[in-house]
Simulated scan of single mutants.
Amino acid sequence: MGKVTLQDVAVHAGVSMKTVSNVVRGYRHVSEPMRDRVQAAIDELGYRPNVSGRTLATGRSNMLAFAFPDLRRPYFAELAHVFSRVCAERGYQLLLEETGDSAEGERSAVRGREAGVVDGVVIHPQVLSPEAIDAIRGDTAVVFLGEDVRPRSADQVAIDNAGAAAEAVAHLAALGCRRIGFFGHETGPESRTSSFRLDGYRAGLADAGIATEFLVPREVGDAIGAEVAFGRALDEGLDVDGLLCRDDLAAVGVLRAMRLRGLEAPRDIAVIGWDAIGLGSSLAPSLTSVAPDTVALAETALDLLAERIDGVDLPGRYVTVGHRLLVGESAPYPDGSVD
């Protein structure tokens, strides 16, 4: 058999071409028996959608791209999973693209590396400035995630990083902590993420009437690097009773460094992470962590992107979604309970 067409699948399944198209596009309002029937025909015939042809016919591919720094980081892996699920619910296919924390990777994603294939791009930038983004994005529909990029002509979705950090410090203060540190920011120039979380940490200290801050950076942004950096700080005499970590990988390293030195959380140091990755609830003690509302993040970003794809022409919009403190054993509630 030559190239299998949409019509071949429709004839084989005994349905209309529109029904086959709805199944291929992931349209939600197709009954499960009908979806199974069409999918069986697709599998049997080996049909593959002609993306370029569909794009020419409709002007849309129903395909989006999600660009992020590194899939090996648990937060981005979990966020990619959420985006994939929300896209599927809306009838989109999703391409995943790692930018590698590089300006070139981010430029390629913003320009729409898959131009002609994707209808729009959601990107979590780490390097590019607002001016650089505005200069290169062209006609690509783009929505940004994360901290203070705020390009003039594109939309951005984030949580309140400073506010969340202040809330975490307030939680530690409510536990009786008075020597509260911040761990895990960069040794070199601070990222926007670290900068906002440090601002919130300092605001939280001020609100609690605490004058002394303890800042411990790390050289390598993984759990092993965190263990080495925090262990060294402990060996050099760091004396804290509460700790807000930049992210959960930093907190994982902290807990191991503490355990190797006979320290326990929260008895010796109450520890809070950030991102609420799935691993945190499996640790002993389970990790207290700032939990961004990743579903709201994905849904809001896709809502804004759909409007841009449909031609909405407005100045860049900045939308904040919710977060919560997921309380585990490493920094429980004052009565000792956890979520």
Rank of each mutant, 00 (worst) to 15 (best):
A13W: 07
V15Y: 08
S16N: 07
M17N: 13
M17P: 07
M17W: 01
M17T: 15
K18D: 04
T19N: 08
T19V: 10
V20C: 11
V23Q: 05
V24T: 09
R25H: 14
R25S: 15
R25M: 08
R28P: 05
R28S: 12
H29G: 01
V30N: 05
V30A: 03
V30E: 02
P33V: 10
R37L: 09
R37T: 05
V38Q: 07
A40F: 02
A41P: 11
Y47I: 11
L56K: 03
A57F: 09
A57C: 04
S61A: 15
N62C: 10
A65F: 01
F66C: 08
D70E: 13
P74G: 01
Y75Q: 05
Y75M: 06
F76W: 13
F76V: 08
A77W: 01
L79Y: 11
F83I: 07
S84H: 13
R85Y: 08
V86Q: 12
A88D: 12
A88S: 12
G91Q: 10
G91C: 03
Y92V: 07
L94M: 15
L94H: 07
L94D: 02
L96G: 11
S102G: 14
E104V: 03
R107H: 10
R107F: 02
S108G: 11
A109Y: 04
V110K: 00
G112Y: 00
G112P: 04
G112Q: 02
R113G: 01
E114H: 10
E114Q: 06
A115Y: 00
A115V: 00
A115D: 04
D119H: 00
I123V: 15
I123A: 04
Q126G: 09
L128S: 08
S129H: 03
E131H: 12
E131W: 05
I133M: 08
D134N: 09
A135Y: 09
R137T: 08
G138F: 00
T140L: 00
V143T: 09
V143I: 05
L145P: 03
E147Y: 07
E147W: 02
D148G: 09
D148I: 04
D148Y: 01
V149P: 04
P151G: 14
P151K: 14
R152Q: 15
R152P: 06
S153I: 08
V157H: 11
A158D: 14
A158M: 03
A158Q: 10
I159R: 08
I159Q: 10
